[in-house]
Simulated scan of single mutants.
Amino acid sequence: MATLADIAREAGVSKATVSLALNGKPGVAPETRRRVLEIAKRLNYQPNAFAKGLALQRTQTIGVIVPDISSPFYAELVRGVEEAASAHGYYLILCTTTGKPSREKMYFRLLGEQRVDGVIVLTPRGDEEPIRQIQAEGFPLVVVDRDIQVTDDVVEVVVDNFHGALAAVQHLIGLGYRRIAFINGIPELQASQDRRRGYQVALQENGIDLRPEWVVEGEFTDAGGYRAMKRLLATDPPPEAVFAASDAMALGAIRAIREQGLRVPQDVAIVGFDDVPLAAQVDPPLTTVRQPIGEMGRTACRLLVQLIQGEPVLQRKVVLHTQLVVRQSCGGGDVEGRNRR
């Protein structure tokens, strides 16, 4: 689908001139207007609702597209966005895709019709074409925790997943564990790939062989972590420690371990990733990699407000750091003295 940028490139004018010509605004020479309209017709240009809203009065609203508001991770993320939005005088319109990428495209259209001033995308996957189109139209957009391939211009806020995972597995190795399994999330996501890479590099740097049967997937859910841990416990020998790529999966894994009559950390050590509020409250408290979840949301919103107000955003990709939070789910001391299975 053609964009303002496509028309501007062919007409040899700026996107602003194209917008003025298409909307019948003054300040465009008749010959230029005629040329722009002809090119738009030939390219079958269809202005989307976001582009139309650019010339209208601001609504002081921000659209937020999120996959699952019931998830502790996304609840904390949205809370961070809301805090920053409120501080800047904006209100949120929240759209939940329930994990269905097809719903994301629908919400882009609906938010455009509502004439929001900008959009924050929290979904980790989906069709990138609407994002490319909106970016090409110059509409304010920020993406969180998602690696966009179709364009380099999208403003992104991500965390350093690789070094977070590396620190988690190195911690287990430092405690003496050698049989270390990995419960990954959704393999095609960049965050999952970076966390798996951190796991692999930690093993390689310490001369530990990677066993394929000890790398399983848990879909970033409690139920997925439970099923994944069941599979790991059925291997021979089973792992003595597990790095789960999310706290939700780690909690599901703990449930599976206890159903087998085993103990955490005496029989199986667990490390998670996220540091959701529940991580510090479970028994035993979960060692995990803390993502600055709230700060991710606040940073995304501050960057979006800059875009809305026409201020330059010099850093298009903001990478936030993680922190290993050591609690009681890994144990410590002499691993050789633990129960062996």
Rank of each mutant, 00 (worst) to 15 (best):
R341F: 15
A279K: 09
T98L: 13
H321N: 13
H171L: 11
R179W: 02
G89L: 06
V142Y: 06
R125N: 02
R263E: 13
Q149A: 14
P72N: 10
P239Y: 09
L307N: 02
C330W: 06
V264N: 06
V216L: 06
S86A: 14
A248R: 14
Q46D: 00
E82I: 07
L56C: 00
E311T: 04
Y91L: 15
R302N: 13
E295I: 01
E295N: 08
V169Q: 11
Q114S: 14
K41R: 15
E76D: 13
L320W: 03
V318T: 14
V319E: 14
R327A: 06
E311F: 00
Q57N: 08
L54Q: 11
I208D: 04
A87F: 01
A16T: 14
R263G: 00
T96E: 15
S329T: 05
Q315I: 09
E137K: 02
A280E: 15
R263I: 00
I186N: 06
G225M: 09
L20I: 01
V13Q: 03
L210F: 10
R263Y: 06
T322R: 05
L232E: 08
Q46C: 00
C95R: 09
Y45I: 08
Q170N: 15
D153C: 01
A269Y: 05
D145G: 02
G99T: 07
C301N: 09
T17S: 15
V158A: 08
C330T: 15
N339G: 09
A245I: 04
V271I: 13
K41Q: 15
S19Y: 11
A181D: 10
R35I: 03
M249Y: 10
P30M: 02
A248V: 08
A245M: 07
R258F: 07
Q60G: 00
L251S: 02
K317D: 03
A87H: 06
V318K: 08
L232A: 09
A191L: 03
H163W: 04
I173V: 11
Q291H: 12
V326I: 15
Q193Y: 04
Q266M: 05
P239D: 10
H321G: 03
E83I: 11
R132F: 07
A21F: 08
N206K: 04
A279G: 11
D194V: 05
I93F: 14
A49V: 01
A136V: 04
M249F: 12
H321E: 15
V78D: 04
V289S: 06
R33P: 03
F182P: 00
K317S: 08
